[in-house]
Simulated assay, not measured.
Amino acid sequence: MKLPPAIIGATGMDAFTHSFESFISNKANPICDMFALESMKLLSQSILEAYHEGTNVHARHKMLLGSTDGGMALTASGTAAVHALAYPLGGKFHIPHGEANSMLLPHVTRYNLDKIQDRMAIIAKEIGLIKDDTISADKAVELLIEQMESWTQELAIPQDLKAFGVKETDIEELALAASKVTRLLNNNPKTLDIKDIEELYRKLLN
């Protein structure tokens, strides 16, 4: 109950990323899907309330359950490129892990889009972004990415790596480090080479 808002936001987005990446991972399976979808539903219903209302025990309760479900999902499946690219940012520039994930999530998602559109439409419906089947899959996907970006902004998570001291000259080293996290990159539904990783980092150098 005493956790500061900034930590609520960062760890909440980390938990959402656990579930999202597990759901779109190459290793996704029915057990993972069950926990991941429930996790994303709970977190999407509570993260802003928990962030803005420090004494809202119901919101924090949902956050705890959502985080736990996310842990079950990633144990059954595993995270992917967002986490792989986030690790070097934490290791070299001490960017909080949840914040790094939040910054990368929309960009990596757009990169993966042609491989995960159907799965994203399922998520959009599960968390209430679409209420019926008349909305196209393309629209559902766009709504989900917009929601990711909106959360990051409202949770006051920086959108620019320059805020943490990252420069263009650091991109090559960061990309090389991320490329070695094959345990997670192998889970990603779309292959990334060094140049792809560099371009994803550059999207966060505004």
Score class of each variant (00 low, 15 high):
K180M: 13
I123E: 04
P5Q: 09
D114L: 08
D138W: 03
H61I: 08
L184T: 09
I157D: 03
S136Y: 05
A137F: 10
Q153C: 09
N206W: 12
G78Q: 07
I116P: 05
I123S: 02
R60T: 01
K115H: 13
L64Q: 12
M63I: 11
N112D: 10
A50T: 08
P96N: 11
E199L: 14
Q45M: 14
S150L: 12
S19F: 06
P5C: 07
P4A: 04
S102A: 15
G128T: 03
A50G: 15
G12K: 06
V82Q: 01
V141E: 11
K125A: 14
M72A: 12
A84T: 01
I8P: 01
A156Y: 14
K190M: 05
M120E: 07
S179D: 01
T134E: 14
P5H: 08
L176K: 02
H52E: 14
K62A: 06
S19V: 08
L155W: 00
F23V: 03
P5R: 11
E99C: 13
K139R: 12
N187Y: 09
K180D: 10
L176Y: 00
E99S: 13
A81G: 05
A76V: 07
E53L: 12
L185T: 03
E149H: 03
T11I: 08
P30I: 07
K2C: 08
Q45W: 03
K62M: 11
I122N: 07
G66P: 07
N206L: 15
E154R: 15
R60Y: 01
T109F: 10
V82D: 01
N29F: 05
L184I: 04
L161Y: 10
G78H: 07
M72N: 12
V108S: 01
S67A: 15
N26H: 08
F16K: 02
G90Q: 09
M1T: 11
I122K: 15
V181H: 10
M34Q: 12
R110M: 12
L65F: 12
I95W: 00
F164H: 10
D160N: 15
T109I: 09
F20V: 02
G70P: 04
G98T: 08
T134S: 15
